[in-house]
């Protein structure tokens, strides 16, 4: 593709990017950041191309490292965003005794927090 078309696409993408998040409420800032973070994991496509065209072993090793990192970004990003969002529910509160079965009456939470 020639440079001018790429520039056109880039500029239009900038405007779409500005427009699409300009009115988002702060409620969703964290999931939005996380979701956008997952999307740039698409660098995986670039890493696959480079790894698939690697001729010498040194290049292949570095390219495969890039594939691992990019996959972690892409897969981890979407999974963690989905985990955040599955918790967003509308006004359909379950009965109060079903809210936190694992917390009721237990003195010590099962999972320990890593930091204090």
């Amino acid at each position: 593709m020639d440079g001018m078309s790429l520039l056109t696409i880039t500029v239009l993408a900038v405007f779409v990017g500005f427009e699409v998040v300009s009115k988002v409420s702060s409620t969703l800032h964290t999931p939005l950041m996380s979701g956008a973070n997952a999307i740039h994991g698409i660098i995986l496509v670039g890493a696959i191309i480079v790894a698939g065209q690697a001729a010498d072993p040194w290049v292949l090793v570095v390219a495969l490292l890039a594939v691992v990192l990019a996959t972690a970004n892409l897969v981890g990003g979407f999974v963690v965003t989905d985990r955040m969002l599955e918790m967003f529910r509308g006004r359909q509160r379950p009965p109060s005794n079903a809210v936190v079965p694992e917390d009721r009456g237990s003195v010590e939470p099962v999972k320990k927090e890593g930091r204090q």
Binding site: M1, L6, T10, A13, G17, V21, A36, H40, V45
Partner: peptide, 30 residues
């Protein structure tokens, strides 16, 4: 996002350009 967009320019891959630019722009606003 911007780095991914630039790598899209390097590889001539439109998807990387669009996705990276989207993240770069929306990330800036955010």
């Amino acid at each position: 996002g911007l780095a991914v967009a630039a790598s899209g320019l390097v590889l001539g891959n439109v998807l990387l350009v669009v996705a990276g630019t989207l993240v770069g722009a929306s990330g800036t606003i955010l």
